[in-house]
Write a protein that binds this DNA or RNA. Structure first.
Length: 594
RNA sequence: GGGGCUGUAGCUCAGCCGGAUAGAGCGACGGUUUCCUAAACCGUAGGUCGUGGGUUCGAGUCCCGCCAGCCCCGCCA
């Protein structure tokens, strides 16, 4: 109902100006303060704009509201949309849309692939930087949040019509490669001679071994440091070893991405290697660079450290090497830069844990002051909290190790399968193994994703299989079940297309509640696009499912006749379409039966 | 020491840039099934929104102080 809200806002503002022409002439601003009604009994919208005018106009707010309402009633465009406005409380103006307008809005969405969500004009690219695991390390629950949230945000932005670059900023460069390559050369030298990639086995164990030797063996350390220099200098053998390690990791990461249906373009830290020097030069040229204690840095404005001195962002270490801040700066410059030496982005978002907030704030400030952001460009950190166990502490296995992502996904699917089998037995249903596997996989993975997405990302997130797989409450299974119910109606002879052409007729309060809920979808998408908070979409889908379940429980569909039947079928169809699309934007596929 | 985030019902959390009597879910208690999957629906109980000030018509929301928890703080990412 975004369009209607816009019309109402314009009409309200005009009505306020007509009601108080003198104040308008003397520059008094009028903000209708239009918002969705906070309660159903208040109608569809509420305008609170009369209250703040009481003082400047020297009149009681209710009287102001009355004057505005009088003007509204004289506006044919308004009376076509709304019933008579009601004034309530201290001076709220409550607006209720005419039933035929609501029905027409539903009708318009029935044939609409976009369900009323407008598509933006082909705009400049949006970069979503997410997931970003480190080469030779296992993906863990921390990456899960970034991956799931980032993917969902990318899907929403894509749906709105933005060209989205989903960038996987993998940790594929840096000092740790010195020890990895040195270790590789010593334990698997044959890998460097074969043309094809060689299976290096368990990379995580490999990493641990290398780390252990690095910590214990001084000669190994020295060789490792030399190896870093060789790699950065472009030594072919070192590069080959580096490539092998990256390939091996990539294969492992891809398994996870495939399972979760995540699409990502890898562009690791190494990509920006050729641009690092340019960053430092650029900063120097713009006069931001200061040499301090041998390191080249930019001192931040408004951020002071321990001794009260401004905090620096170090872009070149005393030994001449670059660090992650340099890489991040190079990435920002490249992403906002024009093609071919850049992505031409207008909005860049980073989905990383909240612990990096300071780092990004610093780096962003440097980028702005260096003048790398085009006018109107948005550069945003999208932080999220830690994943905690049910004890409120950082999530660990019973043995105290970091939880591996694939183990976590396996367990979710296994639990979903056990639940399903128990239910089948209780209900004396019989399904083939393919069905069970399919449902368990979908439900298990959906539960993991939805549990993560449904919480405001900024807070720490308490991970619980029991809660996320619960069949009731704000969970994936509950939402999936609503879709299944509608599919059931279709299976039992309900032609969901029936209402598309016939005129819609609603009589029951549950029908109107569902209509009103369905029409909120476009506003929710716009909000997620702006605020980058997927939990707003989850809340909406949950509420839609609740309203639908009430409707389903109390209003018969298949047993109804005539226009009531086709109208109800139309509501079912739009509900299913909205849930499928909404869940799709969360990266969650739906089921016909479960 | 400085900075960031968090603090809302027994538990897990919402709260849409200041609006009407603070909302869900779980758990607890009590109901509903000749009917489209009861994985549902209906009802009851449960809150001094950490705390003390301030701003104004109006504060969970904005500002300041304090308390508690988590995280970050120069050459790791």
């Amino acid at each position: 109902m975004l369009r209607i809200a816009e019309s109402l806002e314009t009409q309200l503002r005009a009505a306020m100006q007509r009601a108080f022409p003198d104040a308008a002439a003397s520059g008094q601003g009028f903000d209708p303060q239009l918002a969705p009604a906070s309660k159903p009994e208040f109608g569809d919208f509420q305008a609170n704009g009369a209250l703040p005018l009481a003082k400047p106009l020297g009149q009681p707010p209710r009287k102001i509201a009355e004057a505005v309402v009088e003007q509204l009633k004289a506006d044919p465009a308004f009376t076509e949309l709304c019933q008579d406005p009601q004034i309530a409380g201290p001076g709220f103006i409550n607006l209720t849309l005419k039933p035929e307008r609501l029905a027409a809005e539903v009708q318009a969405r029935l044939g609409d692939q976009r369900l009323g969500v407008p598509a933006v004009e082909q705009a400049a690219p949006v970069v979503v930087d997410f997931s970003s695991p480190n080469i030779a390390k296992e993906m863990h629950v921390g990456h899960l949040r970034s991956t799931i949230i980032g993917d969902s945000l990318a899907r929403v932005l894509e749906f709105r019509g933005h060209p989205v670059l989903r960038l996987n900023h993998v940790g594929d460069w840096g000092t740790q490669f010195g020890m990895l390559i040195t270790h590789l050369k010593q334990v698997a030298p044959e890998a460097l001679d074969t043309a094809d990639a060689v299976d290096l086995g368990d990379l995580v164990a490999f990493y641990r071994e290398a780390k252990k030797r690095f910590d214990e063996d001084e000669a190994f350390q020295t060789t490792s440091r030399e190896e870093v220099v060789k790699l950065q200098g472009g030594d072919p053998v070192s590069l080959k070893a580096w490539g092998l390690l990256c390939d091996q990791s990539r294969r492992e990461f891809q398994k996870i991405y495939d399972r979760l249906d995540i699409r990502l373009s890898e562009r690791g830290e190494s990509f920006y290697n050729p641009y690092l020097e340019g960053v430092v030069k650029d900063l120097d040229a713009s006069g931001l660079l200061v040499v301090d204690d041998g390191a080249r840095c930019v001192f931040l404005e408004g951020v002071s450290g321990k001794d009260g001195k401004p905090l620096p962002v170090i872009v070149q270490k005393r030994d001449g090497g670059f660090n992650y801040a340099t890489t991040d700066l190079a990435a920002i410059r490249y992403r906002f830069g024009d093609a071919p030496q850049g992505d031409g982005a207008r909005r860049v978002v980073y989905v990383t844990d909240a612990g990096q907030a300071n780092h990004f704030a610093g780096v962003f400030q440097v980028a702005r002051r260096a003048g790398w952001l085009p006018d109107g460009a948005r550069l945003e950190h999208v932080p999220f909290g830690l994943v905690q166990g049910e004890d409120g502490k950082k999530l660990k296995t019973r043995a105290g190790d970091t939880v591996r992502l694939r183990d976590l996904l396996d367990e979710a699917v296994e639990r979903a399968e056990a639940d399903l089998r128990r239910r089948l037995q209780e209900e004396e249903r019989s399904e083939d193994e393919a069905f069970i596997t399919q449902v368990a996989t979908t439900v298990g993975l959906a539960a993991v994703k939805y549990a993560d997405l449904s919480q405001n990302r900024i807070t720490n997130y308490q991970f619980s299989f029991d809660r996320m797989l619960a069949l009731q409450g704000n969970t994936a299974p509950y939402l999936l079940y609503a879709v299944v119910r509608i599919a059931g109606i279709a299976r039992k002879g309900g032609d969901l297309e029936a209402g598309s052409t016939a005129p819609l007729q609603f009589s029951e309060p549950q029908e109107w509640a569902l209509v009103r809920e369905l029409l909120k979808f476009d506003a929710v998408i716009a909000e997620v696009e702006e605020e980058l908070l997927p939990n707003r979409l989850c809340t909406y889908l949950f509420e839609l499912s609740q309203v639908f379940n009430r409707f389903y429980d109390q209003v018969p569909v298949l047993k109804a006749e005539g226009p009531a039947r086709s109208s109800r079928l139309a509501l079912c169809r739009l509900t299913a379409d909205t849930l499928k699309l909404g869940l799709g934007l969360l990266g969650i596929p739906t089921l016909e039966r479960m």
